[in-house]
Write a protein that binds this DNA or RNA. Structure first.
Lengths: 366, 366
DNA sequence: CTGAAAGCGCTTACAG
DNA sequence: CTGAAAGCGCTTACAG
């Protein structure tokens, strides 16, 4: 029996290794490794001896060594623009959960929506050994992606880069925005503004949602007045309030606004309330994302609800898929479901319908 | 010059190693390592030759190997109860930022507030090699901590475990809750309810905030009626709404509520609005955390604002401190600043004062 | 069913 | 200023 250099008795505490366990159980380190990794063909006598030694020493495998040798880390990276924006926080939560089901831990990076940091992210987050990465880009282009040399499986979230080299999970933004706008038409609105337009390449979220808005207005025979397209570079509450104020100060105020996310809508609600303008009576407000705030705002917010749990699960499963046998299959584009949730901001507060009930929970016994 | 087994030209693409770079630059791998690690005493001729080889091969160090050898991973772990609760999401964002300044990436775990998962977290998140960990516990006790064998530097967030074995960053919850309650007294409220009490051991957040509430009422000569202590096991919007409803249905409704976090307060606001009860005219509402929602709610929410950026920075610096020379210094307990931010929910909406201005931003030109 | 050897890609002493 | 050797703790072939 060889005495390991790294004896638990000499000097400061050091974690026990396979060597220590092997010595104590009088087996080779390979046998200990077999037990640790659940290898089937170990005699039960040996197995229990090893397990006892593991328990006595408090042995836990060294992940760095395992990663170096096996090339796997059981870590997946997630890069989002801003962790403090509820939509991304909720997505992150679902991804952490879905990853845990695969035995993976999640390394988080924040890109601040900067193209440079997004390009760095797809090249491997700070160069750690990770098994896969999920990136929610704001500005990443197909060209950026084409220059990628890192071969770690990459799944893109929430943006559509057509025929890109990577897997992609998304919702049909044009269709969703179209349905949202048609809902505003259906409740009798004639001047429907769009808040959140951005000067970006076509194909990005803002452009897709704007296109859906256009399509809905055209097919309803309503004009798509350029004055009703309100740009907002950032999509936070403060931006929504500012842009709403600008629309209200213009000669022709809208009777409805379709905001490209819920934060913009919540900011708009705030500005409308400040001016004493009634929602939805004077102006109807509709958002996108179904963040929790909108279920409790005053008034509650009608919104397009992407199935975030599904988005997370699909993304994690796509990473697993690439890591498995199907590594070389062509890039997939998977659509996650979404639905329109009608709440007070577009229909008054006389009642909540069945579809909404599950979200309102204890608020709805009235 | 030895040819590495792992040649970039044979078989599928493999990442270049120090060996490849060394061969190409005609130096030893130690010299390449010296250049990569910014070792000073390398001749500029050698350095530039090595740097060119690195650029040509696209070499990037293998973190698993580096971690195995050096015992450092440049990863810190963060465990929070729920990533989708805005307070924790905002804290996580600040920690990711502060960690990045130290060159660290953040591994995120979610405990769901379960004691078992919190105990697992302090024993090392899924056994990855991490340099330090920051844990925001909901139920962890001093006993749990005493049983910890992992020697990775641990910093606790937001809970006070007196004389515990670990570093700790917190705010003075009793004083903050006391000031908040005194503010409600100052605006003339007589029946001030507390929402968010929990049946937990003393020392935990809920108990501390309740104690601050008690102290404020006692010193103001107001009764601390047990009926005005409203328990809420979870601190989400739905709980706030439910608990508010219960208080309103009781014989003696309060004229002010101090909610132990902002989500409870936002839920309470929602229920009050649903019943047509005016805030703050009929009932004043005060929260805790200063999450972004409360700056844009209707009415905007008066709240205790912990300095989250400071909390994150202190926590990360404490980890760095333990990793440095001061590894064996006694555990530290560092208090982060907080302040009370008055908004509409406790004072009507005639104006916003100076202190609040920086938070209101573009909403305030009125 | 179990073992001895090799090696994943680095960094840490130690020589020169 | 640069190099050759050893070894961090595992897993992967390969033997028996």
């Amino acid at each position: 029996v060889e005495t390991p250099t790294n004896s638990p008795t000499d000097g400061p505490f050091r974690r026990p290794t396979l060597r220590h366990v092997a010595d104590r159980a009088n087996v080779s380190i390979k046998t200990v490794s077999n037990v640790v990794n659940g290898y089937q063909f170990v005699s039960s006598a040996t197995r229990s001896r090893v397990e006892q030694a593991i328990a006595e020493l408090g042995y836990r495998p060294n992940m760095a060594a395992r990663s170096l040798r096996s090339g796997r880390s059981n870590v997946v990276a997630l890069a989002v623009p801003f962790l403090d924006m509820p939509y991304f926080a909720e997505i992150a939560q679902h991804i952490v959960q879905a990853a845990a089901e695969h035995g993976w831990t999640v390394l988080i990076d924040q890109t601040d929506g900067s193209n440079e940091r997004e390009r760095l992210a797809v090249e491997g987050i700070r160069e750690h050994l990770i098994d896969g990465m999920i990136v929610s880009p704001l500005t990443l282009t197909a060209e950026d992606l084409a220059q990628r040399v890192d071969t770690t499986p990459l799944v893109l979230l929430g943006e559509r880069i057509h025929h890109g080299p990577t897997d992609h999970v998304l919702i049909d933004n044009v269709a969703a925005a179209r349905e949202a706008t048609l809902h505003l038409v259906a409740i009798g609105r004639k001047r429907i503004a769009a808040i959140g337009a951005q000067h970006v390449d076509p194909g990005f979220t803002a452009q897709l949602r704007l296109q859906g808005w256009r399509e809905a207005l055209s097919e309803s025979g309503l004009p798509t007045d350029p004055d009703q397209i309100a740009p907002a570079d950032a999509w936070r509450r403060a931006d929504g309030a500012t842009v709403m104020a600008r629309l209200l100060d213009a000669p022709q105020a809208p009777d409805a606004v379709f905001c490209f996310n819920d934060l913009l809508a919540l900011g708009a609600l705030r500005e409308l309330h400040r001016r004493g303008i009634r929602v939805p009576d004077d102006i109807a407000v509709l958002g996108f994302d179904d963040i929790e705030d909108g279920r409790f705002s005053t008034p509650t917010l009608t919104t397009v609800a992407p199935d975030k749990a599904a988005i997370a699960r699909i993304a994690v499963d796509l990473v697993a898929h690439r890591l498995g046998d199907e590594a070389d299959s062509p890039p997939q584009e998977v659509f996650a479901p979404y639905r329109l949730i009608e709440r007070e901001s577009t229909r008054g507060r006389e009642s909540e319908s069945g579809e909404t009930a599950q979200f309102i929970e204890t608020l709805d016994p009235s």
